[in-house]
Computed example of a mutant assay.
Amino acid sequence: MLSNQYLASNRGYTAEQKAKSYLEQHSLVFIEQNFKSKVSEIDLIMRDQEQLVFVEVKFRKNASHGSAAEQFTKSKRNKLEKAIYYYLLKNKLNAFHTSFRIDVVAIDAEKVNWIKNV
């Protein structure tokens, strides 16, 4: 029998792949997936022309516990920002001179909702 943790991570990976494919179909270029820092993880890093796009992917099988987009909380955003600054530092990119934004791809069952510049 598969553990709940395995099933959850598999669903997360599947949702991230779906989001990656969706964004690529909308002309974004894939850079990296699951960049880890001590504080958080960046699900997807993409490029939209000259701008880096840090993507948080949220998935909900059904709306019984709220929508996927509602799961992107202020606390999650703060952790994600710290991971982004770590990514920029690690890649020798100046946060003040590098164009970037944070997007959320919220997947509710099969419906994809791309929220830009949250």
Score class of each variant (00 low, 15 high):
Ala15Trp: 07
Leu2Pro: 10
Met46Gly: 10
Phe35Glu: 00
Glu41Leu: 00
Leu7Phe: 10
Val39Phe: 00
His97Gln: 09
Tyr22Gln: 01
Glu32Gln: 13
Ser75Tyr: 12
Ile45Met: 05
Gln17Ser: 07
Ile31Ser: 09
Arg47Ile: 12
Tyr6Phe: 15
Leu23Glu: 06
Arg47Trp: 02
Lys36Cys: 00
Glu110Tyr: 10
Asn62Tyr: 00
Ala15Asn: 05
Lys61Trp: 09
Leu89Trp: 12
Glu56Gln: 09
Val55Arg: 03
Gln49Tyr: 13
Glu41Pro: 05
Gln49Lys: 15
Ala8Arg: 14
Glu110Gln: 12
Gln17His: 09
Gly66Asn: 03
Leu28Trp: 04
His26Ile: 01
Tyr13Val: 04
Asn91Ile: 06
Asn91Gln: 11
Asn10Met: 12
Leu52Gln: 05
His26Trp: 06
Gln51Ser: 12
Ser9Trp: 12
Leu89Glu: 08
Lys38Gln: 08
Ile102Val: 13
Trp114Arg: 02
Leu80Asp: 04
Ala83Val: 05
Ala19Glu: 10
Lys38Ala: 08
Lys90Leu: 08
Ser67Met: 09
Lys76Ile: 09
Asn4Ala: 14
Met1Cys: 06
Lys61Met: 10
Tyr86Lys: 04
Ala95Val: 10
Gly12Cys: 05
Lys61Leu: 09
Leu28Asp: 09
Ala63Glu: 09
Asn94Met: 02
Phe72Ala: 04
His97Thr: 07
Ser37Gln: 08
Gly12Glu: 13
Gln71His: 10
Met1Arg: 01
Val53Gly: 01
Lys82His: 04
Phe72Glu: 00
Tyr85His: 13
Ile84Ala: 01
Glu32Asn: 09
Lys79Thr: 02
Arg11His: 12
Lys90Ile: 00
Ala95Glu: 14
Ile42Pro: 04
Trp114Met: 00
Val104Asp: 03
Asp103Met: 11
Glu50Cys: 08
Tyr87Ala: 03
Leu7Glu: 08
Tyr87Pro: 06
Lys36Arg: 14
Asn94Cys: 09
Lys38Tyr: 03
Glu24Ile: 11
Phe30Ala: 08
Val53Phe: 07
Gln49Met: 10
Ile107Leu: 06
Gly66Ala: 03
Ala15His: 05
Leu93Tyr: 02
Ser40Val: 02
Leu44Tyr: 11
Lys76Glu: 11
Arg11Gln: 13
Gln17Asp: 06
Gln51Ile: 07
Leu23Met: 15
Ala83Lys: 01
Arg47Tyr: 08
Val105Thr: 01
Leu2Trp: 06
Tyr87Arg: 03
Ser21Gly: 03
Val104Ala: 06
His65Tyr: 13
Arg77Asp: 08
Arg101Ala: 14
